[in-house]
Design a protein around this nucleic acid. Structure first.
Lengths: 250, 250
DNA sequence: TGTATGCGCTATGTATACAATAACTGGGAG
DNA sequence: CTCCCAGTTATTGTATACATAGCGCATACA
């Protein structure tokens, strides 16, 4: 190669990891397919060492599976896998909410959460919600969940929640995306927002069990709606990454 | 090097990973200490590439922390980190028990669990329990937890529980070890066994909420006893790995 | 004497060469 | 015609060489 002008500001490992993840989520690499290191080297521009590091990280992340005889393949997920992953994240977020409530949170710490809540309230006043408002909602919702997780002040728990959310279909955003495919989207967003409101109230009043319960309910709502959305196969194109990765027959 | 007679049956990466983990847990590498790749190459016998792979995996596992400027250091844990990790695992195992109960488990699948239960019952008939019986108990207890996890039939959940148990102090065995330091060890083992009995009963009767609740109680018992054991600093030498890794001041 | 700057060394990130194994293909025999 | 074995090829696992960035120490100047 002549163009040895690599960008040193970000490591080749990270670049390869991002590029490969993108290839998986965009469908360039299909589930079950073995990933050729050589091919990955060509498409990512990095050399074999950083590519291999990226592959290991993606395996730990859950997007790849190690092949016993060597190498990696793209993992395939069933509908059950996906709903379990959402429920799993909800359970962990429930624990985070409980920790926050039991350990106490200052008003100052709760402020960003309340701002998020208010911003979403504002968006939901529109009927029907616009496309732009919807993408704002997705961002705000992700922020709300991240802030809530932080409130637990438990590094091990935060770490696990991050890991559980790494799978694209288990992230809070995926939850909202799935909802968007349904005709009842607006109502669902409103219910979700009510859950957010209750969890803040529970944390403020140091009601651990209630905070936990509502977050778990929040996740179950997501699971229910995901199932509904998947029944309407016509809506699947709204969830392209999901449709591509969900090929296992359960 | 002249002795180029490496064992090809297990990869150098795995060997390096095991060796480094052992060095961390045995205290050769101390928390906060930067891990030198060169030194790791010398002590493990593998070359830099597998050593680096092992370091990445140990980071994902949670034993190491990446240093922004490059390289890895041994992570330090606080008492809070450790009790949170145990509660975290208990929460996940609770979800596994719930899944098993709700989704139904055949008598044949439950059989190994019941055998485990009976074997532990047998051990606990000894008063006081002997050292050999105690190590059998540790093994049987770990097996019980692993079997229970499997019953959830949820690969994503099983994966997360394995990850949560990877940290040495969060594994079911650590729980028992911590207990062993207490004068009331025998009683605690009996209570733990009662939890095991109840969770099987709940799964058999498809009582998801009860199965979940008892597993969470099981974890809280572990947390409580760990705290008690840590109060008795004289007992800390019974938990050497724990004492070494737990240096963060919280 | 203290601080700042520059030089050198060491350790990490990256690239590539080499070795070994697993898969595939072609040919031969039953 | 099919199945099995062997050879070849391609791909992964491992080792090492090279480049670069960061860190420390020493020296010089204020």
């Amino acid at each position: 190669m002549a163009e040895r002008e690599v960008d040193r500001s970000v490591s080749q490992t990270v670049k390869a990891q991002l590029a490969l993840r993108d290839q998986i989520l965009s469908g360039t690499l299909r589930p079950g397919e073995r990933i050729s290191e050589l091919q990955a080297v060509e498409t990512t521009g990095a050399s074999r060492t950083p590519v291999r590091m990226a592959l290991v990280r993606l395996e730990e992340e859950g997007l790849l599976e190690a092949i016993p005889s060597g190498g990696f393949m793209v993992k395939a997920f069933s509908e059950r896998d996906i709903s379990d992953s959402i429920e799993l994240r909800g359970t962990l977020e429930g624990l985070a909410a409980r920790f926050a409530a039991e350990r106490g949170v200052s008003a100052r710490e709760l402020e960003p959460l309340k701002e998020c809540l208010a911003a979403i309230d504002e968006l939901l006043r529109q009927v029907p919600i616009s496309i732009e408002a919807f993408s704002s909602y997705v961002a705000l919702n992700a922020r709300f969940h991240a802030l809530l997780t932080e409130l637990s002040r438990s590094p091990p728990l935060i770490r696990q929640i991050d890991r559980a959310s790494a799978l694209p279909f288990a992230s809070p955003s995926a939850f909202v995306m799935a909802q968007s495919a349904l005709p009842e989207a607006q109502q669902i967003l409103i219910i979700g927002q009510e859950h957010h409101r209750v969890v803040i109230d529970a944390i403020e009043n140091r009601e651990g069990a209630r905070a936990e319960a509502v977050m778990r309910e929040h996740a179950r709502l997501a699971v229910r709606n995901l199932r509904l959305a998947l029944r309407n196969r016509t809506h699947l194109d709204l969830l392209p990454a999901l449709a591509r990765i969900m090929t296992a027959t359960d």
